[in-house]
């Protein structure tokens, strides 16, 4: 290009011929107008999206900073939004941890047959997105004679149990030293007093750092707005667990806290046809889970990472 036309500094300081300036200014104005129109066009999708977002949600505080009144109003708003968006009448509550309870979960690898009934029960109980078939539980088919995950396989389709295999369901290990909680930049996920690691779905910014940090593939992201037919929605919901999650936030297993904090067992346990799952209070010396930990050959997954899971695997014989 000819360099002589490209000298901003001296030309602008000196008075320019009147006509040149006017034409140039007119061109600039035209360019700016065109640019502004193109800009408006470009952001049209985001403008239509913001129309669906409520100001109340935008300004909502962190769960642990809410007064009980504020939380009541928020849960009422979420119920109304579920009615509006999904056509379902649901009841959202705030289930709190019980005094003197720390949950533990143990799974008997000797009798698990890999039927994936637990994963299916989780899908239904926790109001997961239907098209993706999401679940908090993945069942690995493992080669007998090794516990090397690399030789495991989740995509098996043959009848189970296969004689050469054993089966290892994996879900959130509710670690006592959870890497996912440490990495969260906005404190949107934390460990509750009963040991359950929870997420405030209305505070999470969706950076997915926790998903990268978790060594157990326990966390899921809502890549789009979950789709569930109204008649399939589980109406018994809690703010920190199975209420329908918004688009663009993380979610995870909560040991079904809307059930377990009210004296019931997790949905995955109730669905298990072989009784491989044991759930209970680690602080109660007479609980079944304590009996398992004391008497069985127990191990935790990836112990070398120092995450201290509250989820245990054991063998019978």
């Amino acid at each position: 290009m000819p360099p002589s036309t490209d000298d901003p500094a001296p030309a602008e300081g000196a008075p320019s011929p009147e006509g040149g300036m006017t034409r140039r200014t007119a061109l600039k104005v035209a360019g700016a107008t065109l640019g502004a129109a193109a800009f408006a066009k470009a952001i049209a999708p985001i403008v239509s999206w913001t129309a669906d977002q409520s100001v109340d949600e935008f300004l909502q505080k962190h769960y642990r900073k809410l007064s009980s009144d504020e939380l009541e109003r928020i849960m009422a708003r979420l119920e109304a939004e579920t009615k509006r968006d999904y056509g379902a009448d649901v009841e959202i509550s705030d289930a709190r941890p019980q005094e003197g309870v720390k949950f533990g979960y143990a799974l008997n690898l000797s009798i698990c047959i890999g039927c994936r009934k637990c994963a299916q029960a989780c899908h239904v109980e926790n109001n997961h997105d239907r098209p993706s078939g999401n679940s908090y539980i993945r069942v690995l088919e493992m080669q007998k004679g090794t516990n090397d995950l690399e030789q495991g396989n989740v995509n098996y389709t043959h009848p189970v149990p296969h004689p050469d295999k054993y089966y290892m369901p994996v879900q959130c290990q509710q670690c006592d030293r959870p890497p996912c909680v440490n990495v969260c930049p906005v404190d949107a996920t934390w460990k509750e007093d009963d040991g359950v690691v929870v997420i405030d779905y209305n505070w999470c910014i969706g950076c997915r750092y926790c998903e990268a940090a978790c060594p157990y593939h326990a966390r899921r992201f809502n890549w789009t707005k979950p789709q569930i037919p109204a008649e399939e929605i589980n109406p018994v919901q809690a703010y920190l667990s199975n209420r329908i999650r918004p688009q663009g936030v993380m979610e995870k297993c909560t040991f079904c806290l809307h059930r377990t904090r009210n004296g019931k067992l997790p949905a995955c346990l109730e669905a298990c046809p072989t009784g491989a799952r044991v759930f209970g209070n680690l602080l109660d010396p007479n609980s079944e889970i304590r009996r398992v930990l004391a008497n069985k050959r127990v191990f935790v997954l990836k112990e070398e990472l120092g995450t201290r899971p509250s989820f245990f695997y054991f063998f019978d014989e």
Partner: peptide
């Protein structure tokens, strides 16, 4: 890369919850 860019203010110290110094982010 954020799933919820509308919640960007959550990471502003003083306004939101800034998980410093634990989170490297």
């Amino acid at each position: 890369d954020l799933g919820r860019p509308d919640r960007f203010w959550h990471i502003i110290p003083g306004l939101g919850e800034f998980n410093w110094p634990v989170s490297m982010l």
